[in-house]
Design a protein around this nucleic acid. Sequence first.
DNA 1: TTAGTTAGTCTTCCGACTAAACAAACTAGC
DNA 2: GCTAGTTTGTTTAGTCGGAAGACTAACTAA
Lengths: 409, 409
Amino acid sequence: MIDSLTTPQPVDFADVRATNLAVVLRYVRGHAPCSRADIAAATGLNKATVSSLVTDLLERRLVRETGLTENRIGRPATMLVLDGSSYAAVGMEVNADYLTAVALDLAGERLLSWRRSFSGLQVSPGKAIAGVTALARRALSRVAGEGRQVLGLTIGVPGLVDADGVVRVAPNLGWREVDLGKQLTAALGDPEYPITVDNDANLAAVAEHRWGAEAGVPNLAYLAGELGVGAGIIVDGRLLHGAHGFTGEIGHVQLDPAGPECGCGRRGCLEALAGVAGLLRRANPDTFTDGQPTDWEPEVQEVARRARAGDKVALAALAEVGGWLGHGAAVLANLVNPEVIILGGYFVPLGEWLLPAAQEELTRRTLAPDAGGARLALSTFGHDAAATGGAAKILAAVDAGHLPVPASR
Amino acid sequence: MIDSLTTPQPVDFADVRATNLAVVLRYVRGHAPCSRADIAAATGLNKATVSSLVTDLLERRLVRETGLTENRIGRPATMLVLDGSSYAAVGMEVNADYLTAVALDLAGERLLSWRRSFSGLQVSPGKAIAGVTALARRALSRVAGEGRQVLGLTIGVPGLVDADGVVRVAPNLGWREVDLGKQLTAALGDPEYPITVDNDANLAAVAEHRWGAEAGVPNLAYLAGELGVGAGIIVDGRLLHGAHGFTGEIGHVQLDPAGPECGCGRRGCLEALAGVAGLLRRANPDTFTDGQPTDWEPEVQEVARRARAGDKVALAALAEVGGWLGHGAAVLANLVNPEVIILGGYFVPLGEWLLPAAQEELTRRTLAPDAGGARLALSTFGHDAAATGGAAKILAAVDAGHLPVPASR
DNA sequence: TTAGTTAGTCTTCCGACTAAACAAACTAGC
DNA sequence: GCTAGTTTGTTTAGTCGGAAGACTAACTAA
């Protein structure tokens, strides 16, 4: 169906063409090498129409003929594959500990995946943006050097990002009211392609939705455990943004009024119970100090090592944190009813010990576990989930019909 | 733009026509008496196209010429208004205490609003469905008697309703796995129009979104306080359904592990703290007994009376419940970021005393109250919010392009 | 070599929108 | 009262994109 909920948005032929081009493009993406006849049969479009659409896509270099023909009875088919080579989408992430840049070609092939250490809290927003710009420039010139047209750049930030790309608050970067989108656009010289900013968990959810182990599941949530805890929520195939773009802020939902103190001033927030600091406090009752650890990865690895070795304190800490994680996941499950909740961040390396307790608690707390309960799963992305999601978001826009105009010719 | 996220869904001229018919219809609905020229100017459609579309809508009797012409320079315009008279949408609600039926014409005018007392818990699902069917028949024959074509029937149920219209669990009706949609369809003799089932809070949210005091706000939630507490969530203009249709089940989110016992076996769920029983327990510490009150309205009125008279116990109970209500609303606000949370059910008659504490608590608990905080508001619908929403959902489908085929002629 | 099968293109048609001219119906002003 | 001006809505011609089906191409099988 045609979407027409927002008021005066008439439709004409260009829209029909764009939509059908996108339909064909998506089919080619999803069904690897396929012929025009396949497309016509599957989509219901007329053979002639498919031919015309494919010609258009070939001219735009979005699709390529492999020449290979199958070996069956009848005339052999010229097979089509997605031609990623002419385009690239760039995703980035700013985090307390690192900057990440990922570039994907149109087919989703990873062109580059860079990571640079970075101290978000120790530099001013201006300096941070300079660092981001530098990394973006390198990534952009790399893909441009390969002759690719850049389709867009999306950057993920751990904080509240409004609809205009302004970072309203990012506690773990020390940012308030930073207009990252505008500044980055200016620094990169107002390029043609769109530059957008989004919450990191939102982007990670998009990555999972598109290329993760649970790709294609229309209702999923991504729950990221880092210094903060945030969620990205996809319902009915759409990423939720809400009135101001601040969905999924589950980190400061209070689970236990008698719980440990949280940075926000309250007690027993999910973040305090199941954020990195919450785990490390419990796992290291004697040595833990309350300053936010900038680079917590070694400490998390140490906890994993102890758990593997059977350390009682570590195992108890993991079970308890797992329980709170399940409690938090249950809030998500009850409110937005995802089919699967994908855990990211430090939950992944410790998943082996967190998951059993978390899944049990989650199941206990969902109203109809047999019918509506959510599964927990571990993210298969590494540190580049959000950056990959940023690139994925751009490719999703192409799939939705915003085809790039042919660059040369 | 044309919506094409779900995979193979090509578009042709019929879709273009349907979309543009809907565009014109929505414009007429929103801009009361207006001329063809107005529509063309506002939508960007060509005057000739608008004429053609309007002719089509006139034939379908969705729109009517008022004949009235404005008194300005130039040729007078023939004004168009929505013609509700040929169609009707029926919404119903099954509740623990009553059955409701509402019929609206296409313009949203209320054709009937009936309420029948009913004891959900004291009759079998079969008997209950017989009662629903009887009321539905009366409503349907009434609107049919007025010469109206029925566009659809939607029925709201306080419980988990899956995507197929099966009521999986409805604690306050004592239902499990009741295929209400199928049974009602059969009982009404497989009519042409769609018969659907949805959660009552979901439907109430639709009603608010369409005709409430906050109509048109694209991000809103409806929080219903009855025996249970449930939410309907609209994000970016769409009602959330989730993987199984079980969104908004906030009633058994635990806010206080040390709180009062809840029917679900845990402690301190929002429902136990801020459901009707939770309030009455606190307001009547001496006389309250724990059986679920079937008809709680008189008792709520009594609490209101006492509050008005300055009764300390009642005021303290209301302040405390208001606080928990704000806490629950904050969970909603942090997860799905609505602009406004509309309170329904018993929260309305007691809103005067609940709101201050609730709003304060909500504001305290949202991460960026200045930027993303949600407002609380009271529903302006009475008992027929869900039923009205059921009818509204059908009219929304018409607005989205599912135009009825012309009945006669 | 011929029959059968499948792929893809070509041609014709139709439906829906645009553009621009035009007819209709009014007001304003001399 | 007549003309000029203005606005509405229809008519006509033209364009675009998809559907249907004939047709060509290229192969397998026997």
